[in-house]
C-alpha cells in the first residue's frame, strides 16, 4: 500500500520550536541560539556577557555538548541557572530538548535565555529551537575561508561575531575576504569584531543584546525598578 505523505521531516521539530517561542514570549524572555564550531569561544563569551548584563538583567542558560558538564560548571557562577544537556551521539540540539529543559528553568526571572548549541557549524543551523535570535560565531583562528565553506549559519544568523580579535596580529586572516563572503549571504545581520580578552567590541555586543531585548519585548529588563 502506498501512502502519500508530502510533509516536511522537520515538521515535528518545528512545531515544538513554535511552542517554545510562544513560551518565551509569554515570559518575555529573549532566547538566543549560539551556533559555531567547537572552540570558537561560545562559553567564554557567555561567561563575560552574563556577568556584564547583571545585576539589571538576569540570564539562564541551556548548554548542549556530547559529553561532560564542563560548560555548565563554568557558567553556573555567572548565570541565574544553567542546564546542561548531554546529547550523546547527536551533533546538535532538538526543540524538544529545549522544551524539556525550559520547564525546569525560572523563565519568570530571566531576561535572557542563552542556548549554547553543540559545537558544530552545520546541523545546528537546520534545527529551529524556538529561539528569537540566532548568533553565529567565527573565531579568527578558524580561518578566513569558513564563511564560504559553511555558509548556512551565516546566512540565517541575526548577528555574526568574529571572536578572538586580540589574535589578529599573529594570524593570517583576510578580513576583506570574510566581509565579502558575508555580504553575499547576509547584509542584514551586524558583523561585530570582538575579543573578550582585550574587550574589543564587547560593549557594542552588550548594547545590541539590550536593544534587541527592548525592541522584541518592549522593556529593557523585567525588574528594572527593583
Amino acid at each position: 500500500m502506498k501512502v502519500n505523505v508530502v510533509k516536511s521531516v522537520l515538521k515535528a521539530n518545528d512545531l515544538i520550536a513554535e511552542n517554545n517561542r510562544d513560551l518565551f514570549r509569554q515570559y518575555r524572555t529573549v532566547a538566543l541560539n549560539l551556533i559555531s564550531s567547537p572552540g570558537s569561544g561560545k562559553t567564554t563569551l557567555l561567561e563575560r556577557t552574563i556577568s556584564a548584563l547583571k545585576p539589571a538583567q538576569q540570564s539562564v542558560v541551556i548548554v548542549g555538548d556530547l559529553e561532560t558538564s564542563r560548560d555548565a560548571d563554568r557558567l553556573q557562577p555567572h548565570a541565574y541557572e544553567v542546564t546542561q544537556i548531554n546529547t550523546g551521539l547527536s551533533c546538535h540540539l532538538y526543540a524538544n530538548q529545549i522544551a524539556q529543559s525550559a520547564r525546569d528553568l525560572p523563565l519568570d526571572q530571566a531576561d535572557y535565555l542563552f542556548i549554547e548549541n553543540v559545537g558544530n557549524m552545520v546541523c545546528p543551523g537546520e534545527f529551529d529551537l524556538g529561539e528569537n535570535l540566532k548568533v553565529a560565531l567565527l573565531s579568527i583562528c578558524e580561518g578566513d575561508d569558513k564563511v564560504a565553506k559553511y555558509p548556512t549559519i551565516f546566512r540565517v544568523a541575526d548577528i555574526i561575531l568574529l571572536t578572538k580579535m586580540d589574535l589578529i596580529d599573529v594570524i593570517d586572516f583576510d578580513m576583506d575576504r570574510v566581509q565579502s563572503d558575508i555580504r553575499k549571504l547576509n547584509q542584514e545581520a551586524p558583523l561585530m569584531k570582538i575579543s573578550v580578552k582585550s574587550c574589543t567590541g564587547f560593549d557594542e555586543w552588550i548594547q545590541w543584546l539590550q536593544d534587541k531585548r527592548e525592541s522584541s519585548v518592549g522593556v529593557k529588563a523585567k525588574f528594572v525598578e527593583t
Binding site: 500500500m1 502506498k2 501512502v3 502519500n4 505523505v5 508530502v6 510533509k7 516536511s8 521531516v9
Partner: peptide, 15 residues
C-alpha cells in the same frame, strides 16, 4: 529549502 517525505510504500499485517 526543505526535506519532504513524499511517500512511503509498505505492507499491512497479513498482506
Amino acid at each position: 529549502n526543505d526535506i519532504i517525505l513524499l511517500s512511503i510504500n509498505g505492507t499491512q499485517k497479513g498482506e
